[in-house]
Design a protein around this nucleic acid. Structure first.
Length: 918
DNA sequence: ATGACGCAACGGCCTTTGGGAACA
DNA sequence: CTGTTCCCTTTGGCCGTTGCGTCA
């Protein structure tokens, strides 16, 4: 006898029985844990079952050979803990465990937290609850659904938030204020440039960055509009506010600008709340309300950023400006911070992460400066001078600041939250490229045209760009493709695309409407344009040629689109500007091209579900690559093919259902060995004689090996049927030529009556009572009889409906008769017996009773109310006289309701009376 | 830190055309 | 004896996906 095993299908087989398992795993030295998973379960079962003595006893009879890891040889410390936790002392015999369920294990564990093994007492400091919590927990289907719903809701909230901010960016007052702040020379500089270019924008951003500071703390509880105004006033704000201000500035200058936000939404999949590492959970497992993208304004939170808590104010300022310092300087700062950190509470990983971030931003900042050839930014000494000047200017202002705001740093660098690119602007530059371009401008982190860097920096911040959404004109557009180069990494983390597209559809229209022209611009801004004599917005509509460059991209090879498709696209976007393309459709094409030209992943796993590429090893049993071209490259030595070359293989029968049949002389592309259990079925005996290669295998064919189904046609009004005398109608393609499927109830009777040949149409199966039951819907008849049958059916149905109506009416009449009869009867009885008849007999009687022996006769039931006869005592078996019958209430027929203190007394005749007992 | 690999568990798809007892 | 009705029981095996642990 051994303890009953749990079914392998049961959830968390170890959850109760083996609370110590994971805890043991946590404590287990790495080498011991090095046993491969195959032995994991066995160990669990084995170790659960016995104490050391019993192990030696049992091994000969069972597990000895099952343990490749040499389990029996060395009982290491982990093992001892395991045994002890189970409470298996030497005196704990196996008989004690026999008959006990596995579920009982947890109780035993709880009871035996202190165990004595070989005279050694071991105390366990952790509670069983803790142990249980540490167990790896797979999410149930319900949890998954819930997580997805939360994800969607959060997504919608963040989308709404983005629109809110976008609207705030259109605020005319904010825009006018920003314009008034813009230095004269810069304004002229911009005025000189009729068309927006990267250079123009970089000068603007340079000024912007010198003017505004990023602070990490959230603003106090107020609307975003007022928060934005406050940020403008104080020249500092959250990264979100700063990014919004930059958008407002661009819009004030008549640039077509969007506010772009990374929607940092909670995970689509259930996150492990019962993690092994609670401290890790705090960092990674962010809830909806921990998101850096706030949905509601939180109370003023004092900045306790990871770096902020480590660095002193001076250091923060230094690290804040390190994008303007030399690499060396920053490294020194980093060292300093590292030194401080070692004494502080920071983990090494956190510090490394921060350094990594600083480095990334530093590198980017320098690249930008080099590109811009910013005057006076060439060397570190110049930078330092400029920074000192800046700090000197900012000194008085910052001295008045509150302690919280004194932690302000001049840029985002140095604070992980702020440094992570979450908000930025996109400005349309018609002069960039031949087709114009949405220019990425992150004023917070000083990225200009750095769309390809965003992913890397976000990645360093442990953020993935799952949803990057651009907001304009109260609308929104998903532009994730522009910033996320490794789409396959985020694809599985995104919500169902159908739903997402449906959500965005109306917003996209608003967005494109706004960015095509200056619909979103308020009148005041137009006035200010007049005052400033700014050039009118040149971007109403862009007439552009769709260059052949699109079609020459690798997209063509992998997209699965035929040559015809691409030519059609060319026609839609002709080379000569006969068709006016909207900015939005151009961007759509750009994003689409990006989608189709994703670089080949370097790791194999990425090819498992990659939308564009495939390698043979990750194909399923029923898939094949055909044809094996074009070869797009190699990954770890495996040839990479376009996903479009992956073909599904099916059996002959499966193709049949799709109205296809295997061509003559086609050999199966793949032959699968039928599993033994499937091969045997009902006729197990006959199978044993078959040394089958024919029966026991599954032949699979590709679609290219099929042709349209050619069924025998109907001749002389006779429907060709299968061996069961029916027609399997999986789809209309499965109908024999010359026949029709009449999917109507009871139509077979018509065909039968008219003596027309027909066959029941079997449309599928359903499982009932544990077996497949065919579903028949309608009949299959020769086409020539269709009209006749339908006509007869219509007539028959009309007749049937008339009969049914008649029947219903007769039924209704009958019920009315019954009802009226009973009413009359009731009335007659009422008349005959009057008030003290039926009604009074059914009324309840309350009386204060007292248990006594003897009898009490009630002459008049209506008089026996508790209030009128408070002292009336009723004994256990009273006798009441009504009419000709004398009711006798026997004690055994009584019942008592404690709640209402009502005693119900019943006479054998069916009469009952209720008395209230005090 | 990342990817490869193996294992385990879960979920979903696929399966595919009754038969015996009681009763009229 | 024959035809009809009712009731039984609620698969379960396989495969793909996913998550986790371990190792390189």
């Amino acid at each position: 006898m051994r303890p009953r095993r749990r079914s392998p299908k049961r959830r968390n087989p170890e959850s109760h029985a083996r609370p110590q398992a994971s805890q043991q795993a946590a404590e287990r030295p790495p080498r011991m844990a090095g046993q491969r998973g195959s032995s994991r379960k066995k160990r669990t079962d084995d170790s659960l079952n016995q104490c050391p003595e019993s192990t030696s006893q049992r091994e000969p009879e069972e597990k000895r050979n099952d343990e490749p890891g040499g389990e029996s040889g060395h009982a290491d410390s982990g093992r001892e803990v395991e045994v002890n936790e189970r409470g298996c002392s030497p005196s704990f015999s196996r008989e004690d465990m026999d008959g006990s369920d596995w579920e009982d294990g947890s109780a035993q564990v709880m009871e035996s937290r202190e165990s004595c093994v070989n005279g050694v007492t071991i105390e366990f400091s952790h509670s069983p609850d803790l142990i249980r919590r540490k167990l790896p927990c797979r999410a149930s289907a319900e949890e998954k659904v819930s997580a997805e719903l939360q994800h969607r809701v959060h997504l919608l909230c963040l989308l709404a938030r983005g629109r809110l901010i976008d609207r705030a960016c259109d605020d005319s007052l904010i825009q006018a204020s920003l314009l008034s702040l813009l230095p004269r020379n810069l304004m002229e500089d911009i005025l000189d440039i009729k068309k927006v270019t990267k250079m123009t924008l970089s000068r603007l951003v340079y000024w912007f960055r010198s003017f505004f500071r990023v602070r990490e703390s959230m603003s106090a509880e107020k609307s975003f509009d007022s928060a934005l105004a406050h940020a403008l006033e104080t020249q500092e704000g959250t990264s979100e506010e700063i990014a919004a201000l930059s958008v407002a500035l661009f819009r004030a200058l008549k640039f077509t600008a969007r506010f772009v936000s990374v929607l940092d939404v909670i995970s689509l999949k259930p996150e492990r709340t019962e993690s092994d590492a609670p401290e890790k959970v705090q960092k990674v497992n962010k809830g909806m309300f921990d998101s850096p993208t706030p949905m509601i304004a939180k109370p003023n939170q004092v900045s306790t950023s990871s770096v902020g808590s480590v660095l002193s104010k001076e250091e923060r300022v230094d690290s804040g400006i390190c994008d303007d310092l030399s690499h060396q300087t920053c490294m020194e700062i980093a060292k300093t911070s590292d030194a401080k950190t070692s004494a502080g509470s920071k983990s090494k990983a956190e510090v490394e992460f921060e350094m990594q971030l600083e480095m990334a931003l530093l590198a980017t900042a320098f690249e930008v400066h080099e590109n811009n050839a910013e005057p006076g930014v060439g060397d570190a000494s110049m930078l330092l001078k400029r920074l000192k000047r800046l700090r000197g200017e900012e000194g008085p202002a910052s001295s008045q600041e509150s302690p919280a705001s004194s932690q302000v740093i001049s840029t985002a660098v140095g604070a992980s939250k702020v440094g992570c690119p979450l908000y930025w602007a996109e400005v349309y530059c018609s002069r960039e490229k031949s087709t114009g371009k949405w220019m990425h401008i992150d004023a917070v982190n000083n990225f200009i045209d750095g769309e390809h860097k965003v992913e890397a920096v976000a990645s360093a911040c442990k953020k993935s760009l799952r949803y990057v959404v651009a907001f304009a004109g109260n609308g929104a557009k998903d532009v994730t493709r522009r910033y996320c180069l490794r789409w396959h990494r985020i694809a599985s983390q995104r919500v169902d695309s159908v739903w997402w597209n449906a959500v965005l559809a109306p917003l996209r229209e608003l967005e494109s409407g706004a960015t095509e022209g200056d619909i979103y611009l308020p009148e005041e801004a137009a006035e200010s344009r007049a005052i400033l004599d700014l050039p009118p917005n040149p971007h109403r509509k862009v007439e552009l040629r769709a260059t052949r460059g699109y079609t020459h991209s690798p997209a063509k090879a992998v997209s699965g689109l035929s040559e015809h498709d691409w030519e059609r696209m060319d026609q839609e976007c002709p080379r000569e500007s006969s068709v006016v393309l909207t900015r939005s459709s151009l961007e759509d094409k750009e994003l689409e091209t990006r989608a189709l030209s994703e670089p080949l992943p370097t790791n194999q796993q990425a090819y498992r579900n990659h939308q564009l590429y495939a390698i043979e090893r990750w194909l399923t049993k029923y898939q094949i690559i055909y044809p094996k071209e074009p070869l797009l490259g190699f990954c770890s030595g495996f040839p990479v093919y376009p996903r479009a070359s992956v073909q599904a293989l099916k059996t002959k029968e499966k193709w049949l259902r799709e109205g296809l049949q295997i061509k003559d002389d086609e050999l199966p592309t793949k032959v699968l060995k039928r599993s033994r259990k499937v091969g045997r079925g009902k006729n197990q005996e006959s199978d044993e004689f078959l040394e089958d290669d024919s029966e026991g295998n599954i032949n699979l064919y590709g679609k290219w090996q099929t042709e349209p189904l050619q069924l025998p046609a109907a001749v002389n009004g006779i429907v060709p049927k299968n061996e069961r005398g029916q027609v399997d109608v999986w789809s209309d393609k499965c109908l024999p030529p010359g026949t029709v499927h009449l999917r109507l109830p009871r139509i077979f009777a018509v065909a039968k009556r008219l003596e027309i040949d027909y066959a029941p149409a079997m449309v599928g199966f359903e499982f009932r009572n544990g077996r497949a039951v065919p579903i028949f819907e309608g009949i299959v008849v020769c086409s020539e009889f269709k009209d006749v049958i339908l006509e007869a059916y219509a007539e028959g149905e009309e007749r049937r409906r008339a009969e049914e109506r008649k029947r219903n009416e007769a039924e209704a009449a009958s019920r009315w008769y019954q009802l009226l009869s009973s009413v009359i009867t009731r009335q007659r009885l009422n008349n005959r017996y009057g008030e003290d008849g039926l009604t009074s007999m059914q009324s309840s009687v309350s009386a204060k009773t007292k248990e006594e022996s003897g009898t009490q006769v009630f002459r008049n039931m209506t008089e026996t109310s508790g209030s009128e006869q408070p002292n009336t005592s009723v004994n256990a078996s009273p006798v009441v006289q009504t009419g000709d019958h004398e009711h006798v209430f026997l004690k055994e027929d009584q019942s008592f309701d404690e709640e209402s203190s009502l005693r119900t007394k019943r006479c054998r005749c069916g009469f009952s009376v209720q008395v209230e007992e005090l």
